[in-house]
Design a protein around this nucleic acid. Structure first.
Length: 643
RNA sequence: GCUGCUGUAGCUCAGAGGUAGAGCACUCCCUUGGUAAGGGAGAGGUCGAGAGUUCAAUUCUCUCCAGCAGCACCA
């Protein structure tokens, strides 16, 4: 038998027979390693302990203390153990697929009756029994035909379909533990007992389409989370609780920011405090765009169908547009996008190369009939306000304009405390319009902007819009969640459809290049993200309510109004609370409403012209003169771009 | 849109085939209290909408509407 040389992480090499498995290698090193081993890395590939190694290789044996490999295997084995548990309890359930996902795993099943929350408990119990069996995991490579026949015999139609969808006739890998068997790429753990019995939890069951296709069978998906130990699981569950506490729908109610009604699903009723915050965002963005050379416009909300036919929206998105019925014979639609309106503004009159770049911005409210199941608080609504702008420029200006947008986005996100920003670059899809040269130019402009700015980005091949490539800006919030907000898209479609031109220095007419960009994206959505990011405790300049001045005794009520007036005169949002309640009561109520500053005034403060300051989250109070607190809060109320 | 679950007072929730209850919030009275709920009284609900079964439906059945979780979608 041929000899091969395996090199270990410490640099030492040893000779083995070709076809040796990592399990045998581990055994040759030590008995304890052989017991603890879970998998290996062979020449960079994650390798099952049972897979043979045929050539010289770099080999590392993993144990449960190698977090990356361990978590992947624990989660993957959990999915299989769950499927086995389900088929143990309900033998007629059909299995499909069960991959590893962030923090855990899922498995999709086909079963006529729905799984109930009680069922999840029973499945968990059965899983722990399987783990306790410490069943060895076994794997074999089967010919494709044999595998198909096997699944036909065992009446697992989904597995048959999966195999038939795998191209070529490469052999397939089968796995077993106990009598239970699944088709799987692997790798897997050594035995079921390596899954920590107290490190996983089944979370929920929900519908999911077979193969992600909404035209196909709806399956039942059971989600679970799994970690290396009980402590990590608990940490994760605590994080979920923390996220639930930050839910902007809950905070929106508690802080009295907005609400929804059945008569307008997906549309927001903004209350005074929420609307103030919303308007602060618009005011901020208006200043930033003004400074960056944008001009603001406003285009009609309802326009004739013919405009939407010209833009192409009618053909592509008619199902998702709100239509307006009127007494005349014309058909109108509520705008789902601002761009066609901006095209009309651009096209009104003759544009010269001297006018470019022309940056048209609008805080336009767009309406889209989103599928009912997609609606979610402020994050996915049917009518929302975009901080939308379109940049018309020459091909030569394109790269520079992309860079400018990128810089503006980053600078703005930084003002909101978002430093961790990732970009997704989506390139030309199969189904597209425009010349290869214009795609080359557009993609290069976006990529160059990212490179020049030193951005972290990933490329999504073929994911671009049919009219041009796009960037999507993803920011990470205070508890590590990612939110897609800004977007920058190059468009060679609309200028053509609307026959837009500019006069070149030579006196010719040429089509401008057009950029679509939104920085917050949807103002409504961004507001929701900010609420969740700050858990409702927004920075003072953005806080929906800033100051409550509360009287301790009714004799201080007049002075309360003096203080409120002084604050208001300084541009601070202040309210009086002179209700016939004790100060404890007032402090509790305003603290729960997350008002950042409570100023309490009683007999002493009236006499001394002072206030007692209580800051949200602090128990300690301090006494300050009225003048001092006004100037301090005035500074705190200044938006970051005006500091 | 699809699968499952849910819908009772402004909010959080209990309840039962014989037309409803709690706490908080609200109104009034007493209380003027120094930093997370002072006391008392009162008002408030076609039990999401419609239809069916029944002597009787808020409760059971169906349809619709809305919400929640996920999937699909997101110009």
């Amino acid at each position: 038998m041929a000899q091969i040389s395996l090199t270990f992480p410490d640099g030492n090499a040893r000779e083995y027979d070709a076809g040796v498995t990592p399990a045998e290698v581990a055994a040759s090193i030590s008995k304890s390693l052989s017991k603890k081993a879970i998998s290996a890395t062979v020449n960079g590939a994650h390798w099952d302990l049972q897979w043979p190694i045929d050539d010289n290789a770099q080999v590392a044996i993993h144990t449960l203390s190698d977090a990356d490999q361990a978590l992947e295997l624990i989660r993957h084995d959990c999915a299989h153990i769950m499927a086995r548990a389900v088929q143990d309890i309900w033998p007629d359930v059909k299995v499909t697929i069960g991959p590893v996902i962030a923090n855990g795993f899922y498995y999709d099943f086909d079963r006529a009756e729905p799984f109930t929350p009680e069922d999840l408990g029973a499945i968990e119990k059965k899983m722990r029994e399987i783990i306790a069996l410490r069943d060895p995991v076994r794997t074999e490579v089967w010919a494709r035909d044999r595998a198909i026949q096997h699944y036909k015999d065992s009446d697992e139609p989904y597995k048959v379909e999966l195999i038939e969808a795998i191209p070529g006739d490469e052999p397939l890998r089968m796995y077993w533990h106990g009598d239970w068997q699944d088709l799987c790429r692997g790798p897997h753990l050594q035995h079921t007992g390596q899954v920590p019995a107290d490190g996983f939890k089944l979370m929920s069951v929900a519908g999911a389409y077979w193969r992600g296709d909404s035209d196909r069978q709806m399956l039942q998906r059971i989600y679970g989370v799994a970690f290396a130990n009980k402590g990590d699981l608990k940490k994760h569950l605590t994080m979920l609780e923390e996220a639930a506490k930050r839910d902007h729908r809950k905070l929106g109610r508690e802080m009295d920011l907005f609400h929804f009604e059945d008569v307008a699903p997906g549309s927001i009723f903004w209350h005074p405090a929420g609307w103030r915050m919303f308007q602060s965002l618009i005011a901020y963005m208006r200043r930033r765009q003004d400074a960056a050379g944008y001009v603001e416009v406003n285009s009609p909300d309802i326009m004739d169908k013919s405009l939407w036919e010209t833009s192409g929206h009618w053909q592509n998105y008619r199902e998702n547009m709100f239509l307006a019925e009127t007494q005349d014979d014309r058909e109108y639609a509520l705008k789902p996008m601002n761009c066609p309106g901006h095209m009309m503004i651009y096209n009104h009159g003759v544009r010269s190369y001297r006018d470019l770049p022309m940056k048209i911005a609008e805080f336009g409210k767009v309406h889209r009939y989103e599928p009912s199941g997609a609606l979610h608080g402020l994050l996915r609504v049917r009518s929302f306000t975009q901080d939308d702008a379109h940049i018309y420029c020459t091909p030569e200006q394109l790269a520079d304009e992309c860079l400018k947008v990128n810089d503006l986005i980053l600078s703005i996100y930084r003002d909101f405390g978002f430093e961790d920003v990732h970009v997704k670059l989506s390139t030309r899809p199969e189904n597209r319009i425009g010349t290869e040269e214009s795609w080359d130019r557009s993609e290069a402009a976006l990529q160059t902007a990212l490179e020049t700015a030193g951005m972290s980005y990933s490329i999504f091949e073929g994911e671009g819009a049919f009219y041009g490539p796009k960037l999507e800006y993803v920011l990470r919030d205070a508890i590590g969640r990612d939110w897609q907000c800004g977007t920058l898209q190059v468009d060679s479609n609309l200028p053509e459809r609307f026959k837009s031109t500019y006069v070149t220095p030579e006196g010719d007419r040429q089509a401008p290049v057009m950029l679509h960009r939104a920085l917050f994206g949807s103002l409504e959505r961004f507001t929701g993200i900010l609420i969740e990011n700050w858990a409702g405790k927004l920075p003072f300049w953005l806080a929906p309510r800033q100051v409550v001045v509360a009287s301790i005794i009714s004799d201080a009520n007049d002075y309360v109004h003096d203080v409120v007036n002084a604050l208001k005169a300084a541009g601070i949002q202040a309210e009086a609370d002179i209700r016939n309640e004790k100060i404890n009561y007032k402090v509790r109520e305003h603290s729960l409403a997350k008002v950042p500053i409570i100023l309490a005034v009683g007999e002493r403060e009236v006499t001394d012209r002072t206030v007692t300051v209580r800051r949200l989250g602090e128990k300690q109070t301090s006494v300050t003169s009225l003048d001092e607190i006004v100037s301090e809060l005035q500074k705190a109320a200044t938006p970051p771009d005006l500091l």
